[in-house]
Each structure stands twice: as structure tokens, then as C-alpha cells.
Amino acid sequence: MTNLRTLQFANLDEAVQEVRALHHNGYTSCGEWSLGQICRHLTLVQTPSVDGYPAWMSLFAFMRPAMRRWLLPKLRRPDSPRGIRTASIFVPPDQVDDQEEVEAFARCVDRFHAHHGEYAPHPAFGRMSRAEIEEIHTLHAAHHLRFLRHNES
């Protein structure tokens, strides 16, 4: 099992700084996805917070209290669980351009911050405050970006 980086970001802006640094300095992947694929995935997952999630993602809304108690504490740990399958709509394609996806993720973060009003209920955790939903997306970014190591200069 590969040793992954321990990453924690205070906010999504720090995650954007990290993806830009990885792109600028080069990176080595210790996982299955490239920087571009991770950025596309983060964008795909984050965008519905503003635009709304597909209706089918609310079918298990009755499980949200249990998910908050069981899964949320695990996601807050630096060694958050690996291998949790994601919905196919959030899986990035095999071939993406790192530069384009880094900038798309940065624009997505800007759009997230510019949003006024409530965010869409999270499929697993339900309605959350602005700070809570940013925390979820920040934890998610750290979870995936820990699989990328900066290249040595």
C-alpha cells in the first residue's frame, strides 16, 4: 500500500493553490487518476451544490442522519477511506488536459464562493450551511489530491 500525503486545507482556495502548484511543478500519481482527472471529478461533484443534484440522488435521503453520524467523522480524518465508489456521473474520462481541468476547477471554486443563497442538499448529508458544505468539498479535495506527489526539483 502506497504512503499517501497527509493534506489538510483550510478552504477551497487552498485546494486551488495546491492544484496549480502540482501543475506548475509537475507531479507523480500514486493512484489511478491524473491531476486533470481529479480536478474534473472535484468540479463534477462540487457543481451540483450550486445547480442541484439529480433527483435520483435523494432516493436515500432517509439515510442522511446515519450518514452524518457514520461517514462524516471518517471523512474528517486525514486517512479518509479509500475505494468508496462514486456515481458514474462523477467519474472523469480517461483523457483530459491537466491545464484545462485545473483552471476549470478554479472557476468552479470561484462560482461556489460567488453563490448567494442556500446550497443544494448534499446527497449523503442533507442540507448544510455554507461553511459545512465548503468543508465537505475541501475534505474531498484533500482526499483526492493526497494521491499526487510534487516532483522533486
Rank of each mutant, 00 (worst) to 15 (best):
M63W: 04
P123W: 08
D94V: 14
G26E: 05
P48Y: 10
R69M: 12
H137F: 13
D97Q: 14
L35W: 01
P65W: 02
F147E: 07
T138Q: 08
W33V: 06
R68H: 02
L71D: 05
E135K: 00
E135A: 10
R20F: 01
A15H: 03
P81Y: 03
F60T: 11
I89A: 10
H150K: 15
S129F: 12
N151C: 15
P73K: 00
L145I: 02
G126Q: 06
R64W: 05
L72G: 10
E152V: 11
V50D: 00
R130M: 08
Q8W: 04
L44D: 15
Y119W: 01
L71E: 03
V109I: 08
L12I: 06
F147G: 05
H24F: 13
R68W: 03
L71Y: 01
F147T: 00
D97M: 05
D13I: 09
R111F: 12
V96E: 02
L75P: 01
F60E: 05
L42S: 04
E152G: 08
N151R: 14
T28F: 05
T86C: 11
S88P: 07
F9T: 06
Q17I: 11
F125D: 01
I38Q: 04
G31K: 13
E152P: 01
T47W: 11
I38Y: 03
T86R: 05
R85I: 01
S153F: 06
A61H: 04
W33A: 10
M1R: 07
S58V: 01
Q37E: 09
H144M: 09
A141M: 06
G83P: 06
Q17P: 04
V91I: 11
Q99G: 05
C39E: 07
P81E: 03
V16F: 14
I89N: 10
D94L: 12
A21G: 07
A55P: 11
P54F: 03
L22P: 08
T2V: 15
R149I: 12
Q95D: 09
S129M: 13
E32R: 15
S29A: 13
A114S: 14
D110P: 00
Q99A: 14
S34C: 13
I136P: 00
S34K: 14
G126H: 14
G26P: 09
E14W: 09
T138N: 00
H150Q: 13
R20K: 04
A114D: 10
S80V: 01
P48Q: 02
F60W: 13
L71N: 02
H140N: 15
R76A: 13
T138W: 07
Q8F: 09
